[in-house]
Amino acid sequence: MMNETAEIKKEDVQSFIENFEKLKEEISKAVIGHSDLLENILVCLLAGGHALIEGVPGLGKTHLIKTMGAVLGLKMSRIQFTPDLMPADIIGTNVLMKDDAGGTSIRFSRGPVFSQVLLADEINRATPKTQSALLEAMQERQVTVGGVSHMLEEPFIVLATQNPIEMEGTYPLPEAQLDRFFFKLIVNYPDSGELGRIAELTTGVSMPELDVLSDMDMINGMKKLIRSVPVPEEVRDYAVSILKATHPETETGSFSRYIRYGASPRGLQSMILAGKVYALISGRYNVSFEDIKRAAYPSLRHRIILSFEGEAESITPDSILDSIVKAL
């Protein structure tokens, strides 16, 4: 489509915005409400990240992701995480195969991770060992089995869901795993109007038919536009300040005692990249303070590990981020 140093034209940005809006509209046909959630999932996809979606059962998380996969025109697979799920069930394994000549050979049987949109449903129900099977795939975009690395196809996005209220029989995601997620998105209850529309849509005779609006090339082309968006120095410094403020050793505010561990540099990358996408979909060519503020919540909330005091006082990472944004 274009090389990285080529001058970007206004039409390119306009096309980006139009495509983005089309995707949103198409998905919104089958998914009532969750506009921000949908937008953030698309931002995640375009920024090359993965999203952890948290919400109580029945809010349509799985439905949203399946719909998105269908509209994007990408290969999609779904894994239902259970306690007895094994890593091989995700990434695949080498199997002994007999050929037509009667000989035997070892062949790699690909797991569901070899897709472009991977729905990891109820990821916290699997053991950490199985959860960790996704680490390499999420970070390196490859899977190594038997000493052989298998590349995943771009774009690749893991959309994991988890239930925050059921703690029995679940395994909270380890910090290393959490840090791999670009965004952590919270699914809220739909409002009355949305509930009415949901009731009407899902209890009727027919479901809306969805068109496939994009393909792999279009998505990759959109991704290339994002990285070149300039970030003014003061905006970059602002993002750094926010990240630094999440560290307990800094005395930005009274919230420091509620934090055990702060956000890693991956959080800064997430903020900046998400800010770039927000800027473009807003029709701007540069990242602003507002973009960073907006990106700070989904980028950092799962990277802030609360201290015992914070847990005891029911402090949430979002309230800490509220304080940080106000303080800076």
């Binding site: 001058e7 940005v13 300039p230 003014p232 905006v235 060519y285 540069n286 602003s288």
Partner: peptide
């Protein structure tokens, strides 16, 4: 939304967006 300051910083750089900014 930092349009003027971004233009002053990147307006004559080799950034692909410089002309637009």
């Amino acid at each position: 939304k930092e349009k003027l300051s971004a233009a002053y910083q990147f307006g004559q750089s080799d950034n692909p967006y410089s002309t637009l900014i």
